[in-house]
Design a protein around this nucleic acid. Structure first.
Lengths: 167, 167
DNA sequence: TAAATATGTCAATATGGCTGACGTAATTTC
DNA sequence: GAAATTACGTCAGCCATATTGACATATTTA
């Protein structure tokens, strides 16, 4: 085990499952977002800001790996509609620290709910250590160059835990 | 084990890993596609047609879950540039059965290569049964309503195995 | 013959990315 | 203190990929 690689067929099956699983995984929040006139980009902003309240715009850009112009539009909409607000940084007054309003946190929870259920159902298998392995596998799917940033993010976000993430 | 659900923190970490992993997973082929003036939609068509040569347009639409108008453009481009060709169905002459040209199959393999390497590296963990569990978990991430179709597809595609998928 | 199916196409629209350029305020560096 | 850099915002245009709705054609089925 671990010596011989996965068979061609099994590997292709996993590639395809990655496609099918992700497609359905994001379909849950998509329906909810539609009711608000939002899209997936809004969801990502809500999620990450909710996980790390007070984060800077640059930190958010680093995580999403998109341009500030792309972020600009969705962020503006979320602010205009009262789901996100900004506060001038105290140490560095150039910064516009990002926070969720109450409505923003509620929406974030509403969007996360179905995905949490789906994850929990998916890893609740008889084999026991599925969650651990699944996490390990997904982690190794991230490009090596990005792993440190992803690990840092997960560790840090787990520590601060977001307002309603069980902290 | 299996009784108590995953902790809030662990579940959120998996949700985020799903995002990071998928983002990097599709980044491999994206670079290659750019050289051909293609996008992810072209990749999906190449992949699935290559896995099931002679499939109908409707079968492809069912798998991709997009509209025929969306498929129309990418399919036309792939045909115009000589990566896909169509053959009139023998039993039903309304059908336009889809096949990859040699160039199409080559490109498909080139796109699949990095993803296969990434999957194999990701599941090549000491714990042994990672691949099996990972597959099971991803399968259960698919919406119940879609599972039969996905299972059918994987089983059928594994059987016919595509021209160069190890058959 | 009529209805349904498989496919293709035209037109308009939306989302979410992108590049490039420019501007302002604040901080850091020399 | 002047200059360079950083953090952020914004305008303008472009591209890829998806959508809905409408219509056309060929073929098969009832």
């Amino acid at each position: 085990m671990g010596d011989h690689p996965l068979s061609e067929q099994d590997t292709v099956a996993l590639i395809e499952l990655m496609f099918f699983a992700y497609r359905d995984f994001v379909s849950d929040p998509d329906g909810i977002l539609g009711q608000y006139g939002f899209g997936r980009a809004h969801h990502r902003v809500l999620h990450f800001v909710g996980r790390d309240p007070g984060m800077t715009v640059q930190q958010l850009l680093d995580i999403l790996q998109i341009t500030k112009q792309s972020l600009g539009r969705v962020l503006k909409e979320l602010i205009d509609k009262g789901y996100v607000f900004q506060k001038e940084g105290e140490a560095d007054r150039r910064q516009r620290l990002l926070y969720l309003t109450e409505a923003g946190e509620e929406l974030r929870q509403r969007l996360m709910g179905p995905q949490m259920n789906r994850i929990r159902r998916a890893v609740a298998l008889p084999e026991g250590s599925a969650a651990h392995l699944y996490r390990k596998v997904l982690y190794h799917m991230v490009s090596p160059a990005n792993r440190e940033a992803v690990r840092d993010w997960i560790d840090r976000a787990s520590l601060l835990g977001g307002p309603k993430d069980g902290g």
